[in-house]
Design a protein around this nucleic acid. Structure first.
Lengths: 323, 323
DNA sequence: TTGTAGGCGTTATCAG
DNA sequence: CTGATAACGCCTACAA
């Protein structure tokens, strides 16, 4: 009743375990007689053999494990966790399709331990919403070439790739397209660990500071009175979850509200607000994963290539669709 | 620049790698001189040594990996993925506090491969919302004693523990407590993979069939007209995400709506509906994890213990709080 | 108090 | 075409 190993198959089939390995893994520089091949395969099936990825990882130096590291903060809004659920589902799908497994870990900003990366020998890491402090720690630890993709963080660093929604482009388009002509006069957005991202969103919006509400778990109550002060105006909200909160007030306060659907959940929105969707062709999760695959395949860490370039490089933006 | 191993430390400290292992792992039946102990520890720190859990797993036969397996279905509502986000966050927290890492995998109901469990030698598995067919497959594969906890599934099987919200108790209390006196006349709930759970909720509710709407991703549109038919009535909704959908109509249709907050997201609800919270003392995630810990510690699979008992045993219910 | 050696399950190199 | 055999990094009797 113990776990079935290659050795078991080998014994049963009267071959060496090396041969079994060749057959199971379809090693092509070895040539195996069709006879033993099918015999071994049959026995493997009969015994319900399942390869042991732990052992394989040890010898190959590759675990087939990717990490999704989500920076958690005591005053994270609930919507962050919901968004992470969507993100996890998408990334895991892509991982599985490509033969990887996904290890999910929530990192506390107050005590950001990244041991998991080295302990588990992760082949690559997605890091979500890091602040600069933590990021600097990380870039020290990671110089040895674990592919790292930073999501939802606006960090000026030429070493790693950053993937995030293209807020600036969207705000520009909303202002410029004459046939649409949306001039948001207020903005409700969220507080990221990565303060630079919050700032970037705010400055891209060109909304005056007193018409901006940066939501977190601690100031949820204040949203309502902020919205009162915007009665009758047009505004933008940067995710669907906050969007639902705002939507509860649109009728009463006669607000016209556009929601930037960064969370992949436009369905959650009532018809009283107007969704602006992320273009599925350039979805954040997909862009990130494709990039990861690229990095996993390039043997030498390609980080050094453009160390002299513009530090703002290595940004990859997922695009919103016009409303 | 290679990864630092115990051998490296040993060489640097002029001891054997066995000694290093003893020291790092604080093996207590070995007695090490304080001298070499601190020397080795210093060198380990200096070299940034990180233990390789892959190698450790191979020799110990325990990976320190738990699996969260979520049954995915093509017509899952978006709320399922949001709920999973909350659940993942909670379980991962508990895992990390107790020295485990969490591997998250979404299983397709149409092709439910559980290879990950054996391939990765998971120490234990949380399985969420399985239907009976898949479950039967599983119980065959798992007879060899990987602790398995089944969540959000109402399955009559004495072998594994099932953890889920106590819907029946809640409906009973809502009917019986005279000072509250909520007699729901309609019910909006969701379609689970585990059809038995949907049925259980429906029958517990004692709501007539024509006043029940079972929501999934395909019939979202119909919700609105169903609610129209309930104008002025009192109803119950079984999670917060569906709750927000229903809440959009409460004012217009003068509905009185109670939300069973099974998703851990009461914050998402507008004040126009009434939340019924899960008692934090008996949270589903916590109950599940405590149980897992218990199973992980009992050397022999304790599944056999009560194979002759009531097949309805092994249910563990998280309790709602009175509204 | 410390070291030696064997083994966990797999892969890969080199012979046969 | 197939089989020894040596790693991979770590743990753990058993010796010294």
């Amino acid at each position: 009743m113990r776990k079935v190993t290659m050795k078991d198959i080998a014994r049963e089939a009267n071959v060496s375990s090396a041969t079994v390995s060749y057959i199971i893994n379809q090693v092509d520089n070895q040539t195996i007689s069709e006879d033993t091949r099918s015999r071994v395969l049959d026995i493997a099936k009969k015994l319900n053999y399942v390869p042991n990825l732990t052992a394989r990882a040890l010898v190959k130096g590759k675990t087939g494990l990717l990490g999704l590291l989500l920076m958690r903060n005591s005053n994270d809004g609930f919507w962050r966790k919901l968004y992470w659920g969507m993100l996890t589902e998408r990334l895991e799908s892509l991982c599985k399709e490509n033969g990887y497994h996904l290890l999910v870990s929530y990192i506390d900003t107050t005590n950001p331990s990244l041991n998991i990366v080295l302990e588990r020998e992760l082949d690559g890491v997605f890091l979500v919403d890091v602040n600069s402090d933590v990021f600097n720690d990380i870039s020290l630890h990671f110089q040895m070439g674990v592919p790292l993709i930073v999501m939802d963080s606006y960090i000026q660093d030429p070493l790693f790739f950053k993937v995030l929604p293209d807020y600036e482009d969207t705000f520009v388009k909303l202002r410029d397209l004459s046939q649409i002509d949306i001039k948001p006069s207020f903005l409700v957005t969220e507080s990221f660990n990565n303060k630079e991202l919050t700032d970037h969103i705010i400055s891209s919006s060109q909304v005056p500071a007193d018409s901006i509400y940066v939501l977190d778990n601690k100031n949820l109550q204040g949203l309502s009175s902020f919205l009162e002060s915007q009665r009758g105006k047009t505004g933008i909200v940067t995710n669907e979850f906050i969007g639902t909160l705002v939507a509860n007030e649109t009728a009463r306060l006669q607000l016209e509200v556009y929601i930037l659907c960064t969370g992949g959940c436009p369905h959650i929105l009532p018809p009283t607000v107007k969704p602006i969707l992320i273009n599925p062709e350039a979805d954040t999760a997909i862009l990130s994963f494709e990039l990861m695959q690229h990095l996993l395949q390039t043997p030498i860490p390609s980080m050094v290539t453009n160390s002299k370039e513009d530090p703002a490089s290595h940004f990859i933006f997922s695009k919103f669709m016009r409303p």
